[in-house]
Every structure is written in structure tokens, then in C-alpha cells.
Computed example of a mutant assay.
Amino acid sequence: MIAVGLAAFRNNVIYDKPVAAADQNPSWTQLASEAAKRWVEKKVRPPAAPPSDKRFLPLHPYEMVYTALGVVALGAGAFSWSQKRHIRLSGAAAALGIVAVAWEWALIGVLIAMVLLLIANLNPS
């Protein structure tokens, strides 16, 4: 459950950067100094390579944590099932582990299921 919660809110943790109060309302001198810096950099230095987009890096530490927790839950569920423990609890642990590991795909599957359910209930009879 913790891994699924971490996966659900990963965009809020990884990509949100709070904006400083000074950046919201810059003064005229700050604007002028930034413009001068940009002008000098264009004239003196060649343009630098654009920064890499962190959303497409293979693994972010936060993503590694919830993926590892999901794999542990999947393994624990499979082990519990192989030991003939409570079958529903074992299945729930394995299912939550899979959902945590493949969060985007699970979310897409749930949305498709909801659309199909809505279409099925719109029968005009």
C-alpha cells in the first residue's frame, strides 16, 4: 500500500519545485541584469546545450524506492502463496506489488475499464 501511495504521488514529489517569492515579482534592476546577462552570453559564449529533461531519465531515486517496494510486495505475495498461506491476502499483496511497479499502465487500465463500464451502462433499452 505504501508503494502504491508513493507511485500515485510521484509527480508531486519529483517534478514540483516551489517558486521563491522573489522570483514571482522581480524588480526592474533584476530584470535588467538578467537581460544583460543573456545578451552577454549570446555575444561572448556559444549557446550551451539545453538541460536534460529529468522526466525521461531512466531511474529517479524516488521511483526506485516505490519500484523496489512493489517488487518486495510481489515477491512476498508469491512466497506466501507458495507456502499455502491465506490465498486472498497473498493475491492482494502480489496485485498491489504489480500495481506499484507498473503504476502508469495500471492507471490506464483502470481508466479504460471505467470507460467500458460507462459505455455498457448507456444501453438505451
Rank of each mutant, 00 (worst) to 15 (best):
K17G: 04
K17Y: 09
P18M: 07
V19C: 05
A20D: 04
A20W: 01
D23V: 00
D23K: 01
Q24P: 08
P26G: 00
P26Q: 01
P26S: 01
W28S: 13
T29G: 13
E34G: 09
E34H: 12
E34F: 07
A35N: 02
A36H: 06
K37C: 08
R38K: 13
R38H: 05
W39L: 12
W39H: 08
V40L: 15
V40I: 13
V40P: 06
K43N: 14
R45V: 13
R45Q: 15
P46D: 11
P46Y: 06
P47W: 03
A49I: 02
P50R: 15
P50E: 15
P51R: 05
S52K: 15
D53M: 05
K54V: 13
R55W: 03
F56T: 11
F56R: 07
P58S: 13
L59V: 13
H60Y: 07
H60S: 05
P61H: 03
Y62D: 04
Y62Q: 02
E63W: 07
E63R: 09
V65R: 03
T67S: 06
T67L: 07
A68S: 12
L69T: 02
L69G: 05
L69R: 01
L74T: 00
G75Y: 03
G75E: 03
A76K: 06
G77K: 01
A78V: 02
F79R: 06
W81Y: 13
K84P: 03
K84S: 10
K84M: 11
R85Q: 13
R85G: 10
I87F: 09
L89F: 11
S90D: 08
G91W: 07
G91T: 09
A92Q: 06
